[in-house]
Design a protein around this nucleic acid. Structure first.
Length: 215
DNA sequence: ATATCGATTATCT
DNA sequence: GATAATCGATATG
């Protein structure tokens, strides 16, 4: 039975500012671990602590959507940092990224998994899951598609949204917590540049999207 | 436990 | 026309 291993967020939860995102995506990715994804709904506040992310480097990264330059779809990546890049994949799922680096450079971080903290019932509804035990929480936000579904994130509504403003409804908060142990592995589900260790996870956290392969 | 596969569509070649 | 930064279901050991 999985245990919550991180403290609850404090009452005040300032959003990360634009400067936080205006850096190398590898640095941003690592430091996003432990931060809190927030979605304010009329009746509830959805929050989850980020436990797994991936860095995409921009035009020099063959696996990045920005690899072939600016298009209609990836335009947000070339804009200012701290904005949501949401894309639709496999005909089924949305994935949430945040743009990084100064305007003109297309690096980003993909949100892959989080540990639910509040708004659990609403997340379960959105996911179409009935929570009957602690293990069911693991299905809520463990995976980029699941995370978006639990939070109600879509391309139509959220692509381009400024994630540095709490007025945006969707933002990233910092309660001062940072995880003790972080590990890096190759990124999931890509074929090009598949060998670089640009996937960052909180070591041992049960809410990551895949268990670490024991060696 | 791991492996394979179908769903379903926007985007790019 | 092929592919894709996925998920959930099914098959098999």
């Amino acid at each position: 039975m999985p245990r919550t291993r991180t403290p609850k967020p404090s009452a005040t939860l300032p959003p990360l500012d634009r400067g936080f995102f205006a850096r190398d995506p590898r640095r941003v990715a690592r430091q996003l671990l432990g931060k809190i994804l927030v979605h304010e709904l009329p009746k509830a506040q959805l929050t989850a602590r980020i436990v797994e992310v991936e860095a995409y480097l921009g035009q020099e990264d063959p696996a990045a959507h920005a690899a072939a330059g600016r298009t209609l779809r990836n335009a947000v990546l070339f804009g200012p940092p701290g904005h949501a890049y949401v894309y639709f994949i496999y005909g089924n799922h949305y994935c949430l990224n945040v743009s990084c680096e100064p305007e003109g450079q297309a690096g980003c971080v993909l949100f892959r998994a989080a540990e639910p903290l509040s708004g659990i019932e609403e997340m379960a509804d959105s996911r179409g899951i009935v929570i009957s035990g602690p293990k069911d929480l693991l299905q809520l936000t463990s995976g980029p598609g699941r995370l978006c579904q639990a939070f109600g994130i879509t391309r139509e509504r959220d692509n381009g949204r400024d994630l540095t403003l709490s007025a945006s409804t969707l933002w990233i908060g910092d309660d001062g917590f940072s995880p003790r142990h972080v590990v890096a592995t190759p990124r999931v589900g890509i074929t090009k540049a598949a060998d670089h260790p640009l996937r960052y996870l909180v070591d041992g956290n049960p809410f990551v999207s895949r268990k670490l392969r024991p060696k």
